[in-house]
Amino acid sequence: MAGGGGMSHGSSSSRRGPTSNLLCSCGKVAVVRTVKSGPNLGLKFRGCPLWPVSV
């Protein structure tokens, strides 16, 4: 995931429950995003709240 801050959505994160706060490598709480295209269309994953960075 280019520019995703190194976040992954492995099965270990799903065992923590929906109320846990997973931290991104930048130190902020990761946000839930949805894949918009490709073979994983519709799947949810956690990613950096700063991506994409608006300039």
Results as ranks from 00 to 15, higher is better:
Ser11Lys: 05
Gly3Gln: 11
Ser11Asn: 07
Val53Asn: 14
Trp51Arg: 06
Val35Tyr: 02
Ser11Ala: 11
Pro39Gln: 10
Gly27Arg: 03
Gly27Ala: 02
Val55Ala: 13
Thr34Leu: 02
Ala30Val: 00
Ser13Lys: 13
Ser11Leu: 12
Pro18Ala: 14
Ala2Asp: 14
Cys24His: 00
Val55Thr: 09
Ser20Met: 04
Ser20Asn: 08
Gly47Cys: 05
Lys36Cys: 09
Ser20Cys: 07
Ala30Arg: 02
Leu22Asp: 08
Trp51Cys: 11
Thr19Glu: 13
Cys26Ser: 01
Gly47Trp: 00
Val29Gly: 02
Ser54Val: 09
His9Met: 07
Gly6Lys: 01
Arg16Val: 07
Val55Met: 04
Lys28Asp: 12
Pro39Asn: 14
Arg33Asp: 02
Gly38Tyr: 04
Ser37Arg: 15
Gly17Asp: 00
Leu23Gln: 06
Leu41Ala: 07
Thr19Phe: 06
Ser14Arg: 12
Ser13Phe: 12
Cys48Gln: 01
His9Phe: 07
Met7Glu: 14
Leu41Asp: 08
Gly38Met: 05
Gly4Met: 03
Leu41Asn: 15
Ser12Phe: 07
Lys44Glu: 14
Val53Lys: 15
Ser11Gly: 04
Gly42His: 06
Arg15Lys: 14
Asn40Trp: 03
Arg33Met: 08
Gly10Leu: 13
Cys48Asn: 00
Ala30Leu: 03
Ser20Gln: 09
Gly38Arg: 07
Leu23Pro: 03
Thr19Ser: 11
Pro52Ala: 03
Arg33Ile: 00
Leu50Thr: 05
Pro49Arg: 03
Pro39Lys: 15
Gly42Asn: 12
Pro49Ile: 00
Cys24Gln: 03
Arg46Gln: 13
Gly38Ala: 09
Ser14Phe: 07
Ser14Lys: 13
Pro52Cys: 04
Ser12Gln: 08
Val32Gly: 01
Trp51Ser: 14
Ser11Asp: 10
Gly6Asp: 02
Gly3Lys: 08
Thr19Lys: 11
Thr34Pro: 04
Lys28Asn: 14
Leu43Ile: 02
Met1Leu: 13
Arg33Tyr: 06
Gly10Gln: 08
Gly38Ile: 11
Gly27Pro: 00
Leu23Ser: 06
Cys24Pro: 01
Arg46Ala: 04
Val55Asn: 13
His9Thr: 13
Ser12Pro: 02
Gly10Lys: 10
Trp51His: 15
Val55Gly: 14
Ser8Pro: 01
Ser54Arg: 10
Thr19Ile: 03
Pro52Thr: 03
Lys28Thr: 06
Pro39Arg: 15
Ser54Tyr: 04
Lys36Ile: 12
Pro49Glu: 02
